[in-house]
């Protein structure tokens, strides 16, 4: 945790020195974002292709329902999908609502050494809110990358900014993402078992996302920057005519660099669960092992020599030696 935290603090200081001290605005504002995007795209494709090349030897869907078998046994169409539509429905529910996490329970040794399982929904709730808020936040940022801004971005923004502080819309997702990231972080720090199994790779994305959210929120509500200039920079990037407007505060470059770090780090980290969830054989296979044979794709084409072939080859010699044969070739010939 200390290591991951120090790395993020180091990153922030690096940008601060680079922008404030060395005036490397072009490097941090143009080169790094392009570089991060290229690393993200190539890395993601590489990782997905690598996964795609791995064969799935067994039919291993994890199911939570009755498999389709005899007509009078009620089958569970979504929890134990047998058709592609069922698989799609189950995967969609998983991706959109984290259904498997909803089944999360906490196991404890209670009184009298009895193992008890308790309802534990906080992780599901925080995880779901975190992911949805992040999506909304990313989607809201389209107002910096599109011209004219699509109406749907506006409507989502006004829905999100339903509450108002002072003259400004207060985005509820800003608060939610900060609170949920903090929850996910504290969960790892405060629960001894979680802390024991947590690695720098678990803390680092949380710290980076926390840094992104915090810098973005401070930029929006406290240390304001010239937002029109920020959009000019963003539009320059997406139209491949990079411009570097004057007078954007250093906090913007910190925010941007942390986003770039997250993008570049993404393909090489646990964050790849974004693509991995779709490629998990326990999720994307239909539970149709009774109806269809799953052939291991890496099965080597074994050269077989059946007894019939064997006898065709050696039958005559066997007969000459007085061995019993199934089809006497002496009779045929």
């Amino acid at each position: 945790m200390q290591f991951a935290g120090l790395v993020v603090v180091g990153i922030i200081m690096l940008v601060f020195l680079g922008v404030q001290g060395l005036k490397l605005q072009f490097f941090f504002g143009v080169i790094i974002p392009y570089l991060a995007l290229v690393v993200f795209c190539l890395g993601l494709i590489g990782r997905v292709v690598k996964w795609g090349r791995s064969p799935v030897p067994f039919s291993i869907p994890t199911v939570h329902g009755q498999q389709k078998s005899l007509p009078w046994i009620k089958a569970s169409a979504i929890d134990s999908p047998v058709t592609t539509a069922g698989v799609v429905a189950r995967l969609a529910l998983e991706v959109l609502f984290f259904r498997s996490l909803f089944k999360n329970v906490k196991a404890e040794l209670g009184e009298g050494r009895r193992l008890t399982f308790t309802w534990e929904k906080w992780l599901w709730l925080a995880g779901l809110l975190f992911h949805w808020s992040f999506l909304v936040v990313i989607f809201r940022h389209l107002r910096f990358f599109t011209e004219p801004v699509p109406a749907v971005v506006h409507s989502l923004g006004s829905l999100d900014g339903f509450f108002q502080v002072g003259l400004q819309a207060f985005f509820i997702t800003d608060l939610i993402i900060l609170a949920t990231v903090l929850y996910l972080l504290l969960r790892r720090v405060c629960i001894p078992q979680m802390r024991y199994i947590s690695l720098p790779a678990d803390y680092f994305p949380l710290f980076v996302i926390f840094g992104i959210a915090l810098s973005g929120i401070s930029m929006r509500y406290f240390f304001k920057v010239d937002i029109a200039a920020v959009k000019k920079l963003a539009m320059g990037l997406v139209t491949f005519k990079p411009v570097l407007p004057e007078g954007i505060g250093v906090i913007f470059y910190i925010h941007l660099f942390l986003v770039c770090v997250l993008f570049a780090y993404f393909p090489f980290s646990k964050l790849m669960h974004m693509a991995g969830i779709f490629m998990a054989p326990t999720r994307n296979l239909a539970n149709d092992s009774r109806a269809r044979r799953h052939v291991n794709p890496w099965n080597y084409p074994v050269k077989v020599h059946t007894y019939a072939d064997y006898e065709a080859e050696f039958g005559r010699k066997m007969e000459e030696a007085g061995l019993p044969v199934e089809n006497s070739q002496a009779k045929v010939s």
Partner: peptide, 20 residues
């Protein structure tokens, strides 16, 4: 899946082609 994802990801790039 990859094509769909990258089409969405690069939305600002192709949307911004005729940007004012």
């Amino acid at each position: 899946g990859l094509v769909l994802f990258f089409a969405l990801l690069t939305f600002p790039f192709w949307y911004g082609l005729g940007a004012a």
